[in-house]
Design a binder for these strands. Structure first.
Lengths: 200, 200
DNA sequence: ATTGTCATACCGACTGGTATGTACGGAAAT
DNA sequence: ATTTCCGTACATACCAGTCGGTATGACAAT
């Protein structure tokens, strides 16, 4: 296995998976390298072989999470051309993610909350992750207004950040209330809001 | 000075103020007792005289923050009887808080994100803080529907959690993007959504 | 008025545990 | 043979929380 460049190895993947799990549950600071190693079934030697620091792992995890998320949305919108329909597909995807399987929250949102002042590099990674969502959605929202509601009186530019904020906030409230219905209801309110803005 | 019961003292207040500031900035885990003591200008002896643990301080801070926040909203709605107008006043209050002064985020939201799994007592305090907002707002939203839009097709029960989620998420996005206009725009979207639901 | 007692208020060195990161060595693969 | 890979032991720092100590004022007894 030598001669490779140290990316893409099963050990590294296990560390990423464990790190993702633990950091999403307890946040960045409380997640310890030892715990991550134990969960991954490896030792510290491996950890610091693949990552030069805990912060390095955090950065990789944030980027990985954002990329996976983006891929999910992209898949949910595959083949759909109408921009408004693409937005609804994205919300359906979020809805589906909340409904099925375990919701362990968004890694980007979880980490951003506690490291934005103390770890500028991680904060930038989080910002990039958010922007990725915001920008792609913004494009569709603006286009959709031109197509379906050119005369309507609202600004489509900021809507994508609004959607993201509500989704992030819903996951936050879920952490304290454990109420899945509330999350789903919030996505419903978002959809109804969009319907009223875009006329359908 | 003896014979009192140890609550309400300038030293304790300084610890609370410092703890609030630091935990809001760095979260619960990263905020150290030493740092809080240094910021308050006292020593560890004082800290553990007034609080039996760091978690104890956290609990007090969450309750304090929620109470202050509730008092602020109450003041913003003072003398207003119409339930819908009360809701708008609350949003105006949030708007104003975002616009003026420093926004250091919501302590409840910040802590909830990282301690919900590891510190059940703190999570319960956060839930109570959120519920306080949700319940009082829910009452007005339900009443407002009966008064102003009894025939409209939406459920007013969940709207308050939706409002809170969007506001919390907006503050979260602010941490990565530092964009105050985005927060204000999101409150604007909320208002316009309410206007479209309630017909005014 | 003075003294003694006691609870509150506060200090700061210390402890035990644990955190990240390092040093180094051996296994395994090319 | 050299590099990747991964384990163990260790270095260093820092964490929450403890503990004895001092100071101060309230109260009671003298």
């Amino acid at each position: 296995m030598p001669r490779t460049k140290a990316t893409e190895s099963p050990t590294r993947d296990k560390l990423l998976e464990a790190g993702d799990e633990i950091m999403r549950a307890k946040g960045y600071v409380a997640a310890t390298v030892d715990e991550i190693c134990a969960a991954a079934g490896v030792t510290k030697g491996s950890f610091f072989h693949y990552f030069k620091s805990k912060e390095d792992l955090g950065k990789v995890l944030i980027e990985r999470f954002a990329a996976n998320q983006a891929a999910g949305f992209q898949q949910a919108q595959a083949g759909v051309d109408d921009p408004l329909e693409r937005v609804y597909r994205a919300l359906d995807f979020a809805d589906e993610a909340f409904r099925t399987g375990e919701i362990r929250g968004c890694l980007v949102g979880t980490l951003a909350q506690e490291i934005w002042l103390t770890h500028p590099d991680l904060r930038d990674a989080c910002r990039f992750g958010f922007s990725r969502f915001i920008e792609s959605m913004k494009h569709d929202l603006v286009e959709a207004k031109r197509l379906h509601a050119p005369a309507a009186d609202f600004d489509p530019e900021g809507l994508s950040a609004y959607l993201l904020a509500t989704i992030q906030g819903s996951m936050l409230l879920y952490k304290t209330h454990g109420d899945r219905e509330m999350m789903l209801a919030n996505v419903g309110y978002l959809k109804s809001h969009l319907r009223s803005l875009y006329g359908r």
